[in-house]
Simulated scan of single mutants.
Amino acid sequence: MKKQVFDIISLAPSNKRYFPAYMKKEDWMGEEYVKYTELEIPLGHSRYGGPVIDLPEGVQVPQGMRFAAQLDLSEISKYDVAGRLPKKGQLIFFSDIMSDSGKVLYTTVANENLCRNIIEHEDNFWEGVLIDKVWSDRESWNERFRKPEDNWDKQYVNETGLLWDDFAGSEKSKIFGIFTHCQLEQTEIEQITNADKIVLLQIGENGFNDEGVFSVLIAEKDLEKLNFENCEFYWGQT
């Protein structure tokens, strides 16, 4: 029997978005857009994308990938009710979303000993957003269904009169819980979620991404061993 309710860690963005210093602010950019040089970004602070990367000394961004995110585990793990995450250190994510590939680095180097790197570019993840709020939360399979809107929808309702919503969950940024990918069928989402795969990170459309969901999965046994070599990377967007 599949699990119905999941403990998750929810993530919310800062009200500022930062971009490379060499770029000109375009007319379409709102007041929330600032150059990274105009924003205070503490070493090791959790964030998504952008040109500012805090890495252990001597570590470089993997060739062919972009910096995608980093999580300050000393803060994030406070909201991990299941105790799955390490209590300190950083998880740093790199990805090439065009090929659904990436790499996750786990380091126990203290925040103050990380080295700041600036890599300005106009590729995927060119703009950055700090993670401003983190909290313990829950989600359930019920959230993935909706009421039919017309007669066409009614052809596909389940026994409870509801319809699977391909886009439900896309508005969330989180750790753990139900896998989200609008291009996969209900059975595929259920199969992945109910297997031994864990959502190590999902960045959705709640102020981080305008469109699309970036997700990283890890096998449960690998997370227990702190082995981040076999993570799976997904970008879901219509």
Score class of each variant (00 low, 15 high):
V213L: 03
Q90K: 09
L105T: 06
E120N: 08
S215C: 07
N124Y: 13
E205F: 06
P86R: 00
N113A: 13
E120F: 07
Q186T: 08
N111M: 06
D166F: 04
F208W: 09
I178K: 09
G177S: 09
K88D: 11
D210L: 09
D96W: 02
Q183H: 08
R138W: 12
K147W: 01
I97W: 00
I118H: 06
W135I: 08
Q183S: 15
R138L: 15
Q186D: 07
I218Q: 00
F176W: 06
S140R: 15
P86C: 00
L184V: 01
Q183L: 08
I92S: 05
F125G: 03
I189P: 01
K197L: 15
K154Q: 11
G102F: 08
V129L: 10
D132W: 04
Q155W: 06
E159M: 12
F176R: 02
S173K: 04
Q191S: 15
Y106G: 02
G207T: 11
E190Y: 12
K197T: 11
N124E: 09
E139F: 14
F179C: 10
K87D: 14
L130R: 11
K88Y: 13
L105F: 09
E224G: 03
D222T: 04
A110N: 10
V157N: 09
V213R: 03
H121K: 05
L105Q: 03
Y106M: 05
T160H: 09
